[in-house]
């Protein structure tokens, strides 16, 4: 076998370097220019830490955002995180596909009229006003101040709420307030199932 020439590039390979502040230089090699773009971009990216949105191990990840476009272009495990130490499973490693880069992400309020066979795009004003109207109507109609025994119960049982263990704790707490403030008793979510 004929031995081929080597790509000659200066290379500094330190194990365990933090993701930011690498400050390495590369000799430009035409054959490789394209393939180095993403690694180069990591050096100038705005990076922030997040936590995985699947199981409850709570693996840490680093999101890299391109300064110019404001978009996430890479998500990988956080090597500093004491639990996962950079590791991720198939779902965590693919978290990029949960970002706005996924064409299937919902971006608009969708509304479906009774009996309609399609979603229509709406704005938040419509949604908030209409939902509030429906909720108030149902609450006013079905609110129970006293139960059959005459005990004060201040509840509504014709509306119910489910979810979610896939939102942040502060949102969970606000959701609890929302449901109990309106008088819901049918409140549940994934924790039970």
């Amino acid at each position: 076998m004929k031995r081929r020439s080597f790509l000659k590039m200066s290379c500094c390979l330190g194990a365990g370097l933090a993701l930011s502040g690498l400050g390495l230089t590369l000799a430009p090699v035409a054959a490789y220019a394209d393939d180095m773009k993403k690694a180069d971009a990591l050096r100038t990216a705005v990076q922030s830490t997040t936590v995985c949105c699947y199981c409850s191990v709570g693996c840490g990840l680093i999101c890299s955002v391109d300064k110019a476009s404001g978009k996430i272009f890479n998500i990988e495990g956080d090597p500093e995180h004491p639990v996962n130490e950079g590791a991720l499973c198939a779902k965590g490693a693919g978290l990029y596909q949960v970002s706005a880069a996924n064409e299937h992400r919902l971006m608009k309020v969708l509304y479906r009229k009774p009996g309609s066979d399609k979603w229509e795009e709406k704005d938040w004003n419509f949604a908030i006003s209409r939902i509030a109207e429906l909720m108030k109507k149902e609450r006013d109609k079905s609110f129970i101040v006293n139960n059959e025994k005459g005990q004060m119960v201040n509840r509504v049982q014709t509306m119910s709420l489910m979810g979610s263990s896939n939102v942040l704790s502060e949102e969970c707490w606000a959701t609890t307030q929302f449901a109990r403030g309106l008088g819901f008793t049918y409140i549940d979510h994934q924790a039970r199932v």
């Binding site: 699947y54 199981c55 263990s165 939102v167 969970c172 609890t176 008793t185 979510h189």
Partner: peptide, 21 residues
């Protein structure tokens, strides 16, 4: 081994009918 990313938090904060946070 809880199954969801924040099921500990959502349980702590009682999105469940039978107790308060």
């Amino acid at each position: 081994l809880r199954g969801e990313p924040n099921v500990q938090g959502s349980t702590d904060h009682a999105i469940l009918y039978h107790y308060l946070p």
